[in-house]
């Protein structure tokens, strides 16, 4: 498992670094942690045997190479100071341009700079915490819903949950609007969001929202719901098959 997922480098074994390491190791990633402080590294190493540690200054390219940056899949820069993160981000993306870099940014302007020097995604500590807490206090049932349906481990077969459907190549749905395809009309499933291929996310799509190939439709429902939506999306051409009549009805508007 570790081998095919690739391994991640976490630079900075502070509190956030530890949280990142824990989350990654729970999901079976191999991890190398870089820090200047031997005590923190010992603490990290005690968490799991899948964790390697490298002691030294992560600002030096030699240490980064020693940690195996050129072969790593991802780098997490969680240093307390934005400037160090930007510097690290820049030197890491020079060594390994393929690397996915995730960084913390205490300042919105630092976030822009980090993205500029090769970070894939940045997270602001205050925003992350603030949004999480406000979500909890304003929408306690949403949290309950998500915990119950999505994160729960004891889900039975046929229980509803998070489902996602991809619009396959050559699908008749591609290029048509949500209203024309009639997902809700035919399957009863309500699409809550569409993730398009360019990484943007549209929430609560309307009947006028246009679909295209490769879009991921996100909804909540059972596996049966997922299959019925997916089969609707997979219809490719009008010719052949016993379901031709149904298809004609489905895409009647666009003909």
């Amino acid at each position: 498992m570790t081998a095919d997922k690739g391994f991640c480098i976490v630079s900075g074994a502070g509190e956030t670094g530890l949280a990142v390491v824990k989350e990654l190791s729970d999901h079976g990633f191999g991890i190398t942690v870089i820090d200047r402080d031997q005590d923190s590294l010992n603490q990290v190493a005690a968490m799991s045997e899948n964790i390697n540690t490298v002691i030294g200054n992560c600002m030096s390219d030699r240490i980064l190479k020693e940690a195996g940056l050129d072969k790593a899949a991802a780098l997490f820069t969680v240093l307390p100071d934005d400037r160090s993160n930007v510097f690290l981000c820049l030197s890491a993306s020079r060594i390994n341009p393929e690397l996915k870099i995730y960084s913390i940014a205490s300042d919105p302007s630092a976030s822009k700079k980090l993205m500029l020097v090769g970070a894939r995604r940045t997270a602001n500590p205050n925003t992350a915490e603030g949004l999480r807490i406000s979500s909890e206090i304003l929408r306690p049932n949403v949290a309950r819903f998500l915990n119950g349906l999505v994160y729960a481990t004891d889900r039975k077969e046929g229980d509803p949950g998070y489902i996602s459907m991809v619009i396959p190549e050559g699908s008749l749905a591609s290029g048509r609007t949500m209203g024309d395809v009639g997902i809700h009309h035919h399957t009863g499933v309500i699409v809550v969001a569409i993730a398009s291929t360019n990484d943007s996310m549209q929430y609560s799509p309307t009947a006028a929202t246009r679909l295209s190939e490769g879009d991921t439709l996100i909804a909540f429902g059972t596996e049966a719901d997922r299959n019925s939506v997916q089969s609707l999306l997979e219809e490719k051409s009008v010719s052949g098959g016993g379901s031709g009549k149904r298809r004609l009805r489905l895409f009647g508007k666009s003909r």
């Binding site: 530890l18 989350e23 969680v78 996602s164």
Partner: peptide
């Protein structure tokens, strides 16, 4: 209650781990 470090860590890691579900949520 929420541990800010854990919240931040999850936020950073979310894209890396379960590609879709957790990231979306």
């Amino acid at each position: 209650s929420f541990n800010p470090a854990v919240t931040l860590g999850r936020n950073l890691v979310s894209e890396m781990i379960s590609t879709e579900t957790v990231d979306f949520l």
